[in-house]
């Protein structure tokens, strides 16, 4: 019924997870733009290999990575099935309804998609959301937006627990979810009730924050420095997909 919320940033102490999130965000952006510009299949495979090394360096567990890549790969599988049957192009001898071009395109999309997700997982998801929010603000995103991100992340777990409580209470009263109008009405009421409780909580939180002297800025205890060693490390990591992309576009 309900998806579990887990964070990759918990309990990882590998090299990349200690790097300043600003540097990681910039490097991730560079890597991802380069990977998305790759056209050749060999270059895409090389980038995937690099992304796997990066994921290992970030200390992401294999099980976590596989679980997180699963939904995207289901999408790629369905896309491959559809493109394999419908994409215009070459067909294998004797099987005119299968498109080789479609299958090749789907495979290239899957390789690039997994590469982009692994880079994102290794470079971005290994930082906590509050740290990311600080980093995004330092990189020039509007303060209101980054505050909204930090506040929302803080509230997600409270609202989830609130919804769980209401849902458990409904189940205890004999509610059994089925494809019926009663089920949809019950979920709508649970959602509406959650919205109402959230609104009153928002007013309490806002009042409490003002009482504690909130002036629109969050200060973090963890403030990793952006030193030369980190910049060099991230630049070196960012250079690999740049070189792969350059070699793909202009081979020697």
């Amino acid at each position: 019924m309900f998806m579990q919320i887990t964070e990759l940033s918990n309990g990882y102490s590998r090299l990349l997870s200690r790097v300043d999130p600003r540097a990681k965000l910039l490097a991730a952006g560079l890597c991802m733009v380069c990977v998305s510009a790759i056209r050749g299949f060999d270059a895409a495979l090389a980038a995937l290999l690099f992304a796997l090394v990066l994921t290992f360096a970030a200390g992401v567990r294999l099980q976590n990575a596989v679980l997180r890549l699963a939904p995207a790969n289901v999408f790629f599988l369905v896309l491959g099935f559809v493109l394999g049957l419908s994409y215009p192009g070459k067909t294998p001898e004797g099987i005119p309804w299968i498109s080789l071009d479609g299958l090749e395109l789907a495979l290239r999309i899957a390789v690039k998609g997994n590469t982009l997700l692994l880079v994102f997982m290794a470079m971005v998801c290994t930082s906590s959301v509050p740290a990311l929010s600080h980093a995004l603000q330092a990189l020039g995103l509007p303060r209101k937006l980054t505050l909204l991100l930090a506040f929302t992340h803080g509230q997600v777990f409270l609202v989830r627990d609130e919804f769980h409580r209401l849902h458990r209470a409904a189940l205890a009263r004999g509610f059994s979810p089925r494809c019926t109008m009663h089920t949809y009405r019950t979920y709508a009421v649970l959602l509406g009730q959650t919205v109402l409780r959230s609104l009153s909580r928002a007013e309490r939180i806002h009042g409490a924050m003002l009482l504690r002297g909130f002036t629109g800025r969050f200060h973090t205890l963890a403030s990793p420095a952006l030193g030369w060693r980190e910049i060099l490390l991230v630049a070196a990591l960012g250079m690999v997909p740049v070189l792969i992309c350059l070699h793909d576009r202009w081979p020697l």
Partner: peptide, 28 residues
């Protein structure tokens, strides 16, 4: 963001969290 006033940030965040949580519910 222009229409979101500073003193409504918490309100917007709580509603964002509610919609986030709501979108994780699987309905038959």
């Amino acid at each position: 963001l222009r229409r979101l006033e500073e003193n409504r940030l918490i309100l917007a965040a709580v509603l964002a969290a509610t919609f986030f949580v709501g979108s994780l519910i699987h309905v038959p």
